[in-house]
Amino acid sequence: MDKIDISVIISTYNSPAWLEKVLWSFNQQTFKNFEIVIADDGSGAATKQLIDAIGKEVSYPIQHIWHEDNGFQKTIILNKATVTSKGDYLVYTDGDCIARADFLKMHANYREEGYFLSGGYFKLPMSISQLISKEDIESQQCFDIDWLKTHGLKSSFKNNKITAKGLKEKLLNKLTPTTATWNGHNSSGYKKDIIDANGYDERMQYGGEDRELGERLFNSGIKAKQIRYSAICLHLDHARGYVKPEMIEKNLKIRAVTKGDKVLKTPYGIKKL
């Protein structure tokens, strides 16, 4: 195989049923020159068994980067996965986001030196999240608005995220009031830019830990492109038992320093400065 063009870094923690759906979705990608790097924040044996089994069936290579469970350490495992990745261009997403067949093609088409790309996700209720099968992913009917409505999805402006095509899609990317930020579920950038920023700040736990990396990229002169209506993924529902208010408060303080002091590199990243 030629040199890998794109590395897709997927964060996961003890959600093998959701991760399986996500890995099937990457087997449907129209853009083929990629690898998956799973950033595993300490999952148990079931996740390893799933990755070993599915690795024999999918068309792309998988690296499984794991460390022992020691609480929420997503930023640490993301940095390890970033270093291990083989592509020059990195797409970051989560183990609960099913990617549409053109997801990587959109990231590949929109990428540009001096920019990172900011995508969104389309939230599904638990009932539909559980319902989606391998067959629904292979046929892509889980991205069909009529199929989703048949299974209980409510009508909403947000449905444009999965129905917008062509000119409407470009227009909505331009007009959306949502700021283009670095989102852990759907963002991409050049590996050299992420390494220059020293990756994720490993002090940070849940709440804005992804955005802080984007804020450092902004400080170094990199701009963001909005692709929330182009690079589409379905977000599977789940509980968030790991969220604690003190985590969010601590992260907000770190982000305030990043913005106020125009920080370019975190001293608490890939390399400890």
Rank of each mutant, 00 (worst) to 15 (best):
G71T: 06
I4H: 01
F103C: 12
I227Q: 02
K21W: 08
L273A: 13
L167W: 02
N219S: 15
S220Y: 13
T93I: 15
I38T: 15
L78Q: 11
K265N: 15
L50E: 03
D201R: 06
E35G: 13
T178V: 13
I6C: 02
K86G: 01
A81V: 06
V58S: 07
S230R: 03
I62F: 01
K272Y: 09
K253E: 10
A17E: 12
A224H: 11
T12W: 13
I51V: 14
D261P: 08
I54V: 06
V263I: 14
T75W: 01
P16C: 07
G221C: 05
W182E: 11
T266K: 08
F34C: 11
A224S: 13
T75Y: 08
N219G: 15
L117G: 08
D5A: 03
I36T: 10
D136M: 02
F103L: 08
G44Q: 04
L175K: 11
T181N: 15
K123I: 07
D146I: 05
G120D: 06
H235R: 04
Q63T: 07
W147M: 06
M106P: 04
R216E: 01
K272A: 14
V83M: 15
R211L: 06
G120A: 14
S139L: 03
L171W: 07
K21Y: 14
I227R: 15
Y206W: 14
F122M: 02
E68S: 15
K56S: 05
K158R: 07
A180N: 14
S59Y: 02
D210H: 14
R228W: 04
E135C: 04
K149H: 14
S43V: 06
R240D: 00
E112Q: 11
Q63I: 08
G208F: 02
R255S: 13
G189I: 02
I222W: 13
G241T: 00
D261M: 12
K250I: 02
K244C: 01
T163Q: 05
K123D: 12
Y190M: 10
I132E: 01
K105Q: 09
E112L: 07
L172R: 06
S230E: 05
Y190F: 11
D2S: 08
E113I: 07
I194N: 11
K21C: 05
K134N: 00
E20F: 11
K259N: 00
I51G: 03
D144G: 03
L236S: 02
L90M: 15
I232M: 05
K32F: 00
G71P: 10
G199E: 03
S11N: 10
T266Q: 12
Y110W: 15
I36S: 09
L104N: 04
L50D: 00
K170Y: 14
Y121E: 05
V58Q: 03
Y268M: 09
M126S: 06
Y121T: 02
E202G: 02
I10S: 07
Y242H: 09
N79M: 09
A164F: 10
M204Y: 01
G208A: 01
